[in-house]
Design a protein around this nucleic acid. Structure first.
Lengths: 123, 123
DNA sequence: TTATGTGTATTAATACAATAATACACTAGT
DNA sequence: ACTAGTGTATTATTGTATTAATACACATAA
């Protein structure tokens, strides 16, 4: 469900926050849906439980998630959460910039990159 | 020449290291070429000089750069440095993965992403 | 009631990242 | 010699990230 990479240099809790935001944004996580438990995520990704909790905590502060003690964290249903295509494309910008900067610095042809991209998605 | 973002969560010195590696890999930086001075990069990117120095230092330890006290850091000429297309495409993998994961989680159509990518490169 | 499952809070410890300010060693041009 | 330009080292300080180990408050089902 999530892709956590402790070696990436990006703080784990930030990786998790961004990925949860995306899945809410797309509607794969809907208002009322339960999130995986802190301990479960900590186990499956070999990470400390408090690190997961920190991500949940901050998303709750943002209003994206709702907490009920003793129960699983859920996606908040107060807000208009899932976003239209244009909004979701905006969330892609950082990853897109990363790729174009790398493509440029490596002097690669964008069409080659696109071919690679298509292959990666198809499989 | 470089694109440094102190807010990205990624350590600044690692951002710089990776970007220098790419430009050497593509041949935009050739053996013997001078790199921008520590102080110049620090100024233009509003970053501490020692942070730049750390990146240079580690790349020197890797053998990519060569230092001569009192002179500018240069690209090392001992090694086989610039890489063929396939090798450079390999260096793109992390950025590609980032993008495909995000695309997936946002439930976006890969063709829309590719369109965005083309626009970004053309301009 | 008990057992097991939620998330949370706290404390301590460790490591890393970045900054500021200063000084040093060296090179090159004047 | 002087000056301005390299990279480097040092010290002190700040903030962040992560972990381990416990303990707490609450919910739910047996």
């Amino acid at each position: 469900m999530f892709s956590i990479n402790p070696q990436s240099g990006l703080p784990i809790y930030k990786q998790l926050m961004e990925q949860i935001r995306r899945m809410i944004s797309s509607g794969q996580l809907k208002p009322g849906d339960n999130l995986p438990s802190v301990r479960e995520l900590a186990l499956t990704h070999a990470v400390n439980a408090m690190t997961i909790s920190k991500a949940y905590n901050m998303l709750e502060a943002e209003g994206l998630l709702a907490r009920q003690r003793g129960k699983a964290m859920t996606v908040s249903d107060n807000n208009q959460l899932s976003e239209n295509k244009q909004d979701r494309l905006k969330r892609l910008q950082p990853a897109l910039s990363q790729l174009t900067i790398a493509t440029d610095q490596l002097e690669l042809d964008i069409e080659d990159v696109i071919t690679l991209l298509r292959n990666k998605v198809e499989k």
